[in-house]
């Protein structure tokens, strides 16, 4: 059976467009609001990434850090994250949802226990920022057994040889990091160059769904829309921060922003 992640890409290909992938942090700005946000933006996005926050995020820039700290300050626990996923999946069972975070939370929760809870709540995939290949081989196999997608990352520093091995061990989706940066950095590489690297990876195995993330905003998204998928994260976190500062409702605000992003890539 095809995974929901695969199906989402298949649908997008049918419509001849890139998949829109969003990233928001579970519990930002409250548990309820983060669920409402998922519900609202799932009308426009094809795949949802949901961050489970960590207080020492070594690869995240200011925007996602702010969202993570806000969620943690509101007392978000892994248990709540699974609860949010479950409640979302009750309404939207076919919308793929990917959890994203750092390995220590999984390590403390217990790998098997974590995957059991993922399965129970309906998580479709995992991105673990600090568990690179080949260190992730064992865990990725465990994920596969549970029919959970383990999403491998490739960056501009990844050698061609290593790329081949990572692609070989990947599941339905691969994440290409557009540039040397933490999340939320300004796009400092030209879209042409990013797509050139993107095509190098596609050449290894064109069947793998390859998405690009880091530095993607409403300003840059159009220039990369030939990719299988594009991830927007920091811009959404920033939208939440700004709407809170201005006393606006983050849910309606985010709904609008993601709607606009979608229109940019149609």
């Amino acid at each position: 059976m095809k995974s929901k992640i695969s199906l989402a890409f298949k649908n997008c290909k049918k419509e001849n467009r890139t998949a829109l992938i969003t990233y928001t942090v579970a519990g930002d700005n409250t548990k309820n609001n983060s669920l409402k946000i998922l519900k609202a933006i799932s009308k426009h996005a094809d795949i949802l990434e949901l961050g489970f926050p960590h207080n020492t995020p070594i690869a995240d820039g200011g925007q996602i850090q702010e969202s993570s700290y806000r969620a943690l300050k509101n007392g978000i626990k892994l248990e709540d994250v699974f609860q949010i996923v479950k409640r979302f999946k009750n309404i939207q069972p076919n919308k793929p949802l990917i959890l994203m975070g750092y390995f220590n939370l999984i390590y403390q929760h217990g790998e098997d226990n974590f995957l059991k809870n993922c399965k129970k709540s309906g998580v479709d995939g995992l991105i673990i920022v600090d568990l690179p290949w080949p260190e992730n081989k064992k865990f990725a196999r465990k994920c596969k057994k549970k029919s959970i997608n383990f999403i491998q990352l490739i960056s501009p520093t990844t050698s061609h040889n290593r790329m081949k091995k990572i692609v070989r061990d990947s599941h339905d989706m691969i994440y290409y990091i557009s540039m040397l940066s933490t999340t939320g950095g300004k796009l400092k590489v030209s879209p042409r160059k990013i797509l050139k690297n993107y095509n190098k990876i596609k050449k290894i195995n064109s069947k793998k769904n390859l998405v690009i993330g880091f530095g993607i905003t409403n300003k840059t998204i159009n220039s990369l829309k030939s990719a299988n998928g594009l991830v927007v994260g920091s811009m959404l976190c920033k939208t939440i921060s700004n709407s809170l500062k201005k006393g606006q409702n983050p849910v309606t605000k985010l709904d609008k922003v993601v709607y606009n992003l979608k229109n940019k890539i149609l």
């Binding site: 390995f103 260190e135 520093t157």
Partner: peptide, 12 residues
């Protein structure tokens, strides 16, 4: 110990 690092830092 080990190397629990983002992919970008693997090569450096």
């Amino acid at each position: 110990g080990g190397n629990f690092i983002p992919e970008t830092l693997k090569k450096p």
